[in-house]
Each structure stands twice: as structure tokens, then as C-alpha cells.
């Protein structure tokens, strides 16, 4: 059964930015877009497993720091190659200034 996990403070992430979030043996990224929406996706790019924590966030997309694959953080959909597989995304909510992710 999925649980809502307290991932970080909402203020830990700047506007249009990303931080890494590790939980158990898994790694994710939490992304904040330009309109204060928060998203959680798998942490590794589907192309070559490069971590997205150093990526570039533009509006609600994240760009892999190594090969520039761009993903839509709200759906995980890959928008530009070389990645061909979508990212997995996880439901996210903000309560009392904390970001929770359903894992």
C-alpha cells in the first residue's frame, strides 16, 4: 500500500529548481515549477541513468544534465531524445509547508 512520505520543506526548493530525494534504496527528484507546483519523478534519466538532481528546470520540464533529454515533470513524458522512455511520476502534495510524495 502506498504511503505519503514527508520529502522536504516546500521552501527547500527554489522556483524552477530541483532537489534530490532518496527514500530507502530508491532515488527521486522533487521539482518546483514556475507556478509553485511541485512534482516528484524517478531520479534517474531513462536514457543512461544520469541523476536529474543537477538538471535544468524550465517551467514544468526538467532537462537531463548530461545529454539534454527533456521530460514533462507533470506526466513524466519524454519531450526530446536521446531518452525514449518516460519517467515515472508520483503524486505530490504540499501541506503545512511540507512536500509529501505518495510512494
Amino acid at each position: 500500500m502506498a504511503d505519503w512520505i514527508d520529502a522536504c520543506a516546500a521552501s527547500d526548493i527554489d522556483e524552477e529548481d530541483v532537489i534530490r530525494f532518496d527514500h530507502g534504496s530508491r532515488t527521486f527528484v522533487i521539482v518546483r515549477d514556475h507556478q509553485d507546483n511541485y512534482y516528484c519523478t524517478d531520479g534517474l534519466c531513462t536514457h543512461e541513468d544520469v541523476h536529474l538532481e543537477d538538471g535544468l528546470v524550465v517551467e514544468a520540464t526538467i532537462e537531463c544534465p548530461k545529454h539534454s533529454s527533456i521530460f514533462d515533470c507533470s506526466t513524466g513524458e519524454v519531450e526530446t531524445p536521446p531518452a525514449c522512455e518516460n519517467l515515472h511520476t508520483y503524486p505530490t502534495k504540499v501541506e503545512n509547508g511540507r512536500v509529501f510524495v505518495e510512494l
Binding site: H47, E48, H67, P81, P82
Partner: peptide, 13 residues
Amino acid sequence: PWCWKYSHARHHS
């Protein structure tokens, strides 16, 4: 365009 997109990705990897 496609071969060299991937060729260059490999060059960076």
C-alpha cells in the same frame, strides 16, 4: 541528425 545525436551523446557519456 539522429545518428549524430546519439553519437554525440555517447561521446559525452
